[in-house]
Design a protein around this nucleic acid. Structure first.
Lengths: 124, 124
DNA sequence: CGGAATCCTATTCGATACTG
DNA sequence: CAGTATCGAATAGGATTCCG
């Protein structure tokens, strides 16, 4: 057993990096948008059709949040009709790297996880 | 610009590994609990005091979910008073690796993110 | 085309009280 | 000690309508 003194204490507040990262990308759509923009810059409605099921409202809102956190750049081209393009910032391109590790792990263990869930539910 | 044909389409449903992983650990407490258990197995009330701010209800519920997904094992020792210990499963120990990558990235860029947020808020 | 504004629902989460 | 049960507040997110 681990020595009691080695046990860390975790604070769930704004200064906690764990809390911060989960608060930023732990919502329903952020990661999907980040991954979509890995393929290169894209327009609002193109993103909307590529991210199946997202509402206009949530796409706008999530893009604003990602822009605010510094992961996405927004560029307005004052044409008629207006064109708006979104692209990853340097920070955006960086954060997707560890995210890819996570997703590739998840893809690799997808079946095992579904199995664990089924096993658990078949009990009790 | 990226070729249009290279652009992937993302589906936010149960078969999407991205969605799955975020649905599992994207809540308020899961990652903190997983990281707490990295230090070794621990008891319910010990976890409760180490994860500052978590309520009894959410600790129970999140532990049950993590157990269901196969990340945590729960062992009851029928002593008086009862002792219940939680520990990471093999899968639990594995998923924290990519999570650590993410958190360490977040810690490293913590200031940059706060700055981006401040910059964004000072505009408009 | 790319939003903003409004309304409404479902889910999440915390507080509190009780229990084997 | 380690929960369960119940309630209520806050938040997230979807649907719809309108706009420059």
């Amino acid at each position: 057993m681990a020595d009691k003194n080695e046990r860390r204490v975790f604070h769930n507040n704004e200064d906690c990096p764990i809390r911060n990262v989960i608060a930023q990308i732990g919502d329903k759509w952020s990661m999907l948008i980040l991954f979509a923009l890995v393929d290169g810059e894209d327009r609002f409605n193109s993103l909307k059709s590529r991210i199946v099921g997202i509402s206009q409202r949530m796409l706008t809102q999530t893009l604003r949040d990602l822009e605010r956190e510094g992961y996405v750049n927004r560029t307005v081209f004052p044409e008629v009709p207006v064109r708006v393009e979104y692209e990853l910032t340097e920070m955006g391109r960086e954060i997707v790297k560890p995210l890819y590790q996570l997703v590739s792990w998840a893809e690799h263990h997808h079946e095992k996880i579904k199995q664990a869930r089924a096993d658990y539910d078949s009990m009790a």
